[in-house]
Amino acid sequence: MSAFSVLFRREMRLAMRQSADSFMVIGFFVIAVVLFPFGVGPEPNMLARIGPGVIWVAALLAAMLSMDRMFMGDYEDGSLELLVLSPVALELVVCVKVLTHWLTTGLPLILTAPLLFVMMNVPGEIWLVLLLTLVLGTPVLSLLGSVGAALTLGARRGGVLLSLLVLPLLIPVLIFAVGAGDAVLFGNGAKANLMLLGGMLLGALALTPWVTAHALREAVA
């Protein structure tokens, strides 16, 4: 069996047996969005205007919520040292961790999003584009989050610090994702925005596993 599938099956098994974590992320996502109609008033046009942005920001925060757990368990019980010392490339371990994180947070967020589109009165013609931005954007959250999670291992108040470090770097993703919806509404087409998001995803995919692996080696040294 290949190293990838050995790692992947272990991660999925661990995630499945702690599936409450995933539901908590979804719960946070929904509640954070639901607060807005109370905060800014339930006027449908207003909600439709701010809906995509609110949903994206909530998704960002929800993804951050589970980010610090990415390596924490392995760091605390000594598994991380052994993963660093295993004959398998650490970059591969990182990729598997990121993939599992995305499957247990990013994917559920995408699946929940349509429900929130309805509740926030988001216009039907931008649903597809917004879902596409989530598909392209949430993996970037997991990838960049992995860098932050690795850097803050063993730090005091690691979770808060992680958000402080990673959220500013995610601003471009937010801008272009929400911009895609606006572009469709203004009749410009979202192709440019989606291409940029795709570019960010490819860039993150190429660089972050390497940076994260380096940060993990430092964390156990």
Partner: peptide
């Protein structure tokens, strides 16, 4: 600055924040 200060062992903070 926050990351650099967040560790009890200064060397770890220095390396982590350098990567950042």
């Amino acid at each position: 600055m926050a990351l650099r200060d967040a560790f009890d062992e200064p060397g770890r903070g220095a390396r982590a924040s350098a990567i950042l």
